[in-house]
Simulated scan of single mutants.
Amino acid sequence: MKLNKTIALVAVILMTAATLIGCGAKPVLAATVGDQEVTVTQLENSYLSGSSYASMYGYDTSTEEGVTQYRDYLLDNLISSAMKVYQAKLAGITLTDEELAAAKATAQQNYDDTVASFEQQAQQAGATNVEAYAKTLFTKALVANKTTVKKLQADMLQDAIDNTLVSKHKTALLEGVTMTDEELSAKYAEVLASQKEQFDATPSDYFTFETYAQYGYNAPPVYVPAGFFRVRHILVADEITANMIKEKIDAGEDFEALLAEYGTDPGMQSDANAAGYLVGEGASFVEPFLNAALALAKDGDVSAPVESDYGWHIIKRVSTEPAHEIPYEDVKGAFDLYEQSLYSEQYYADIVSKWVADTTLVTKYPENYASVGK
C-alpha cells in the first residue's frame, strides 16, 4: 500500500525503535546482532522514511540494483545501531536513576511530538474537528506501521534507554582519546595547504567553509584568498532617514560618526567586526546588501541607500583584504575542538566497524527482507 506523507511521518520515529512488530505477532527477522534483533518491519520503516534521501547517499532507487544497494545500506545502519546497544550491555553499562528518568522524559517528549505532528497536519488540512481528524490520521499511521499506541510508547522508551546506554559506553571508550599538540599542529598545516589550493581556485568556497564552521560541520577557514574587501554599513528603519544620512555623507560628514549616531546593526558595534564585514562573491549576506556591497569599486566608495528585509543600508567599502593565512594561534580553540571531535568520532567508528565485522555476532536473513523496497 502506498502511504501518504502524513502516515509516513510516524515511520521516521519508528525506524529507530528497538523492535517494531505487530501487536502479539512474532517478528520476522532481517538480522540478529548478538541477542539484539533487527526486524523486517524496522527495515521497511527505515526504507519508507528514507527513500526520498537515497540519492543524497549515491543510490538510484529507480533501478532494482539501486533499491537493493540502498536497502542493504539501511540494514547495515540498523545492524550498527543494534551492535552498539549489544556491546554497551556486554560491557556492563547501566543507567542511574537520574539517567533512566531522563530517558523516560525523552521518550514521552518524542511521543508527544509525534501526536502533535498529526494535530498540525489536521490543522493544515483545514479539518473542522482537528482532534478527531488527527486521531484518525494517527490511527492509520499506526496500522500502516504495524504497531499500537502502547507498543509505540514502549519502543520509544526502549529506544531512549538504548541511546543513553550507547552514549554512556561511547564516553567510556573515548576517555583519554585525544590528539597530541604535535598532531594538531600538523593537521593545521595540512588543512592550510588544502584550503589554499581550494580557495585560490574557487574563492567563494571560503564563505561556504565559514558558514559550515559556525555549525560545527568543518574546521574554521585558516586562509583568506585574494579578491575580498571589508565594508561597514549604517542600518536604519526607513528610507527617509537613510536618504538624510546619505546626504550628510555626501556633504562631508564622518561616516563612522553617523554610524555611531544612527546605526542599528549591533554587529557594527562588535570588536570582532571593527574592521568591517568581509565581502566577496558567495558571502552569506542578504542579496540586496551583498549586491550593493559588491558594486563598490574601490575603497572609500559609499553606496546609495539600499533596502533589505532588515531595513535600509548605507554601505561603505573601507579596505581591500589581501590574501593571507590565519595563524594557528588565532583559530586554535575552534580548530582543535573540531579536529579532536573528528578524531574521536573516527576512533569510535573504527571500533564499531570491528564489532560489526565479527561474523559470530551478526547474522543476516536475506530471504526475509529481499522484497523490501521493491
Rank of each mutant, 00 (worst) to 15 (best):
S51K: 15
V318A: 09
L100D: 05
V306R: 07
K150Q: 01
S52L: 07
F209L: 10
Y223I: 04
A160P: 00
K140Y: 11
Y206C: 05
N218I: 07
L258M: 07
H169F: 10
L43M: 00
L74C: 02
I21G: 08
A102E: 06
V331I: 13
Q340P: 00
P322V: 06
S81A: 15
Q69F: 12
K196F: 01
E247D: 11
A275Q: 15
L361I: 15
S80K: 14
A201E: 14
I326H: 08
K248G: 02
K151W: 13
T320I: 12
A213H: 07
T68R: 15
T128H: 03
M56A: 14
K170I: 01
D250E: 13
G22R: 13
Y223W: 02
L294K: 14
A54H: 06
G263T: 11
T61S: 10
Y328S: 08
G216N: 13
Y57W: 13
Y343L: 03
L90I: 09
G227Q: 10
H169T: 02
I13Q: 07
Y262D: 09
L174T: 03
D330P: 02
L361C: 09
I161K: 07
E261D: 02
V12H: 01
E175P: 09
A101S: 10
K5M: 09
T211C: 00
Q346N: 07
F335R: 03
M156P: 07
F289S: 03
Q340E: 12
Y73N: 12
E131V: 11
K298Q: 12
